Computed example of a mutant assay.
Amino acid sequence: MKFQIEPKDNIFYIRLHGKLVAGPETQKMMEEVDMLINEPVLLCAVDLSDVKFMDSSGMGVLVSLLTKFRNRGGELVLIKPSDHIRKLLIVTKLNAIFTIAENDNFAAQFLKESNF
C-alpha cells in the first residue's frame, strides 16, 4: 500500500493506493497520523477510491483511524470506496459507523457541517 497525507482547509486527506493490509507502509501511515493528529486539525477524509482489496487488518486500520479522531472530538469520512470495499463494509456492518462521501467536496461539506 502507498499513501499520501494532504492537509487542506483544516482537513487531513489520506489517499490510499493498492491493498489495505497490515504491513510496514500501514504502520508508517499510522505513525504519521499519530504525529499529525496533535495539530489543531481534527477532521479527516480517507480516500479509498484506489483501494481494490482490504482484509480484516485493513478494516482495523480504518476503525483505528476513526477512533483516533473521534477520541479527540473530531470526525472521519471515507471517500468513494470501490464496490468491493463497500460490500465489505456492509457485510461487517461497518457502514453503520462510517460516513461515506462520493468525492472530496462532499467529504469536506459533511465534515465542516458536523461542527466538530
Rank of each mutant, 00 (worst) to 15 (best):
H17S: 12
K2E: 14
N95G: 09
L48S: 04
V41R: 10
D104T: 14
F110V: 07
K19P: 00
D9C: 00
L88F: 04
N71D: 03
F12R: 11
R15T: 12
G58H: 02
Q109R: 15
H84N: 11
A96P: 15
R70L: 01
M59E: 03
I37G: 06
F53K: 15
L62T: 09
F12L: 11
L62H: 01
G74V: 00
K80G: 07
Q109M: 04
L16G: 04
S49G: 06
R15H: 04
V61Q: 10
F106H: 15
I37A: 00
A107M: 10
N10T: 08
G60I: 07
A45V: 15
P7I: 06
L65G: 05
P7G: 08
G73E: 00
R15C: 07
V63A: 05
G18D: 07
F69K: 06
S64L: 12
T26G: 03
V77D: 03
D55P: 05
T99S: 14
A22W: 12
V77E: 00
S49R: 12
V33R: 02
E31H: 06
F106D: 12
K28Q: 14
K52W: 10
Q4D: 11
L111I: 08
K112Q: 03
N38S: 09
P7Q: 14
L48C: 03
V21W: 00
M35E: 13
S56H: 06
L48F: 07
L78Y: 05
R72Q: 06
N103L: 01
Q109P: 01
M1A: 08
L42R: 15
F53S: 06
N105F: 08
D104K: 10
V21S: 04
T67P: 02
K112G: 01
G18N: 13
Q109I: 12
Y13V: 06
N95L: 05
E25T: 08
N38M: 07
E31N: 12
S64C: 10
K2T: 10
D9A: 01
H84R: 12
G23E: 01
N10H: 14
N103F: 02
L42M: 13
I14F: 00
H17E: 14
T26P: 00
V77G: 02
I37P: 04
H17A: 03
K93A: 08
V91P: 00
I97V: 07
L16K: 03
E113K: 13
V46Y: 09
I5C: 02
F116C: 15
F3Y: 15
T26I: 12
M59D: 00
F69D: 14
N38Q: 12
E102A: 14
G23A: 06
I97C: 03
K93W: 00
I79K: 06
F53V: 14
N95M: 13
F53A: 08
E32G: 04
I97R: 10
R70S: 09
D34F: 00
I97D: 07
L78K: 13
K2M: 09
C44P: 02
D83H: 07
S82A: 09
G60D: 03
L20Y: 01
M30I: 13
R72Y: 02
T67V: 13
V91I: 11
